[in-house]
Design a protein around this nucleic acid. Structure first.
Length: 112
DNA sequence: GCACTGACTCCCA
DNA sequence: ATGGGAGCCAGTG
C-alpha cells in the first residue's frame, strides 16, 4: 500500500467536516492525531485522489483566509464552493467564530 | 546529511 | 488591518 497512515487519517477527518462549516489546517492535523503538522495537511489534500471527493474547500488557514494566491484559479474555485454552501466571505476572510467546525466530537454531539 | 520548498501558524511592529 | 520573520515538519533532490 502506498497511502501513509497520516495521510489517511487526515483524509478521514476532512471527510467529516459538515456542509457549510470550515476548519483550519492546523486543527485538521490536530484532530487527525498529528499536532503541528498543518503543512502536511496541505500536502495530503494536494495528493488526494479525486474519487475520494473530499470537501477540501472547507479547509482554510488559521486566519480564516484561503491559502491560495488571491485571484488564482484554485482560490476562486474554493471561494465559490464555500459561498455555494452559504459561507460568506467578506474582504477575503471567513468569520471563524461563526463557521468553524469544532471537531469530530462536535459532529457526534449534534447527531444525538 | 544538507538545503530548499510549501494548500501553515504564531508573534510583533 | 497588514506584512515580515521565525518556527514548524515531511518531501524532495
Amino acid at each position: 500500500m502506498s497511502v501513509g497512515e497520516a495521510q489517511q487519517a487526515i483524509w478521514d477527518i476532512v471527510k467529516k467536516i459538515p456542509f457549510g462549516r470550515v476548519v483550519s489546517y492546523g486543527r485538521v492535523a490536530y484532530f487527525a492525531g498529528y499536532p503541528r503538522h498543518a503543512r502536511m495537511v496541505g500536502r495530503a489534500l494536494r495528493e488526494a485522489p479525486d474519487h475520494l471527493q473530499l470537501p477540501w474547500h472547507r479547509v482554510v488557514n488559521a486566519k480564516g483566509k484561503i491559502s491560495f494566491p488571491a485571484g488564482s484559479e484554485r482560490a476562486s474555485l474554493q471561494k465559490g464552493k464555500l459561498q455555494s454552501e452559504g459561507v460568506t466571505i467578506l474582504s477575503g476572510r471567513i468569520d471563524l467564530e461563526r463557521y468553524a467546525w469544532l471537531g469530530p466530537l462536535d459532529s457526534e454531539l449534534w447527531q444525538m
